[in-house]
Design a protein around this nucleic acid. Structure first.
Lengths: 135, 135
DNA sequence: GCCCCGGCGTTACGTTATTACGTATGTAGC
DNA sequence: GCTACATACGTAATAACGTAACGCCGGGGC
């Protein structure tokens, strides 16, 4: 169904990724830990180690302003640019998108400054269309 | 020397802002607490309360990816757009800039989605010109 | 067999942030 | 003056987030 996209996951990595996929939204590391207690998880480090790898593989993103993690919304997580996130402060829904043009402008700035970019965080906080009171 | 820019700060707010200004770079809340023990600070909450106000006034920015705070680099903190930050992972230097064009594109996205934007986080991690090995 | 390495499990600890409660001070209305 | 209210403050306790250090295990290369 999905193209081959990631280096085979270990059991723990698969469990953590499964939790995030099933959740369909952001989870904190400790929330994941609680979800996986029945699967044998006992300590935060088990979660963090798996998350580190999943982030490295690009299958999971870290939301810095939430101290939480979310499964990448791209099917199969094939190659794609830097992700940005819109986070609704009312309902908690997170929308991922790929602001290529904006990134290009940010990269222009880094080039002019001689700054070697390794990672970009773009997070928008606000209210989603559903939650914006319509009347 | 500086134009009138902020609603008079309370003693604690002034102390915290002074610490950040003097530091010339990011500090964590607990680092500020340690700096201000001699001034009578005893508990984290004293720092966090002051920081909340300073951020609200736009005089201090929170760096989400660092869990730290930095004084706004605009003199007098007069009106300005959303700030972005380039953080050198080698030397820790933080450069603030105002990516108006990129923000405009991000706002285009929010408008098309009906997302009401309240706050934007843009943080670039990488290596600054000084720290990039030149040979 | 032997070594190395990546992943794993566990304990303990460090760091960051908040909840809850009570006190002090200023100001507006009466 | 007095009350009512809002804002700031002080303190203690605790919650939430993240990491260091240790040792074990299993698989691959030689």
């Amino acid at each position: 169904m999905s193209v081959e996209t990631h280096p085979d996951l270990t059991k723990n990595q698969a469990l953590v990724f499964g939790s995030l996929s099933d959740a369909g939204g952001p989870l904190t590391a400790y929330a994941i830990l609680d979800l996986l207690r029945d699967s044998g998880f006992r300590a935060p480090l088990q979660v963090y180690r798996a998350l580190d790898k999943l982030v490295e593989y690009g299958m999971v993103h870290r939301l810095e302003s939430l101290n939480a993690f979310v499964a990448c919304s791209h099917k199969g997580c094939s190659s794609h640019g830097t992700a940005a996130f819109a986070i609704c402060e009312k309902c908690g829904v997170v929308s991922e998108f790929t602001p290529d043009k904006a990134m290009s402008l940010l990269r222009d700035w880094t080039k002019s400054e001689g700054f070697q970019l390794s990672r970009t965080t773009i997070e928008l906080r606000g209210t989603c269309r559903q939650c914006a009171v319509p009347n």
